[in-house]
């Protein structure tokens, strides 16, 4: 096994030795070329995000709309419970999967559907038969309307993707402006002990593989609901 490693690394070093590549093509002028300065951070080029929290929440809401994420600002946990109970009734949900956090527990307090907790593991078929999965998250990204989840913050890898409806409960303090900030936050939080799974979720699962026509719920959740609570 180390053999392949030596072979490949030797080939790479041989290929790179005294053999400088031209810098990214200075010769090419694109027809819609603007100024092209270097040594910048992605933040300067990516979609702009306001600095204030309310601007960020508004942007997240707008992005959610385009993505078909069902985004709700909830004044109180009671509001969030009300939204959940409507969903449960509409979908005639029998079984809901979740993991234990203060917020998921509070949200499910008065709920009457059966609960599957993934905290100590689960049977795949059991989880597959649930009508919805409720999870927390690491943070919300205003810039793109994405939600960063991880194994610890979302009850493992499958809870947020296997059930047909994914509900995320989050707090306004979890809003970050952009992707860069989200990745920085993950680094700060975990240092060298990253979870094995981190995912930016940006809207419900979708496909355009048939005639490039958008269909929601290809393999993952058909619906994605975000309940945002004040701190």
């Amino acid at each position: 096994m180390s053999d392949g490693k030596t072979i490949i690394l030797n080939r790479i070093r041989e290929a790179l030795r005294e053999n400088p590549a031209p810098r990214p093509h200075a010769s090419h002028t694109s027809s819609d070329q603007e100024e092209t300065p270097r040594d910048h951070t992605p933040r300067e080029w990516l979609p702009k995000v306001g600095e204030r929290l309310d601007e960020q929440i508004d942007l997240f809401a707008r992005q959610s709309e385009g993505l078909k994420t069902e985004f709700h600002r909830c004044g109180t946990m009671e509001d969030a419970r009300a939204i959940l109970s409507v969903l449960v009734a509409e979908g005639a949900w029998k079984k809901i999967a979740t993991h234990t956090t203060p917020d998921t527990s509070a949200l499910l307090e008065k709920n009457r559907a059966e609960i599957l907790k993934t905290d100590t593991g689960y049977q795949i078929d059991d989880l597959e038969s649930c009508d919805a999965g409720i999870t927390g998250c690491e943070c919300l990204v205003a810039q793109t309307g994405a939600i960063l989840v991880s194994a610890p913050s979302a009850g493992g890898r499958a809870l947020s993707v296997l059930p047909p409806h994914h509900i995320i409960i989050a707090r306004t303090s979890q809003m970050v402006p952009d992707l860069t900030a989200a990745l920085e936050l993950a680094k700060e939080r975990y240092g060298n002990k990253f979870p094995s799974f981190l995912s930016f979720i940006t809207g419900p699962s979708r496909t355009g593989d048939i005639e490039r026509i958008l269909v929601l719920g290809a393999h993952g959740p058909k619906r994605l609901t975000v309940l945002l609570l004040e701190d």
Binding site: H28, T29, S30, S31, D32, Q33
Partner: peptide, 13 residues
């Protein structure tokens, strides 16, 4: 019609 070389090699648009 934008000729491609004028358009993309020379940036004439």
């Amino acid at each position: 019609h934008d000729g491609c070389h004028g358009l993309r090699e020379l940036g004439v648009k």
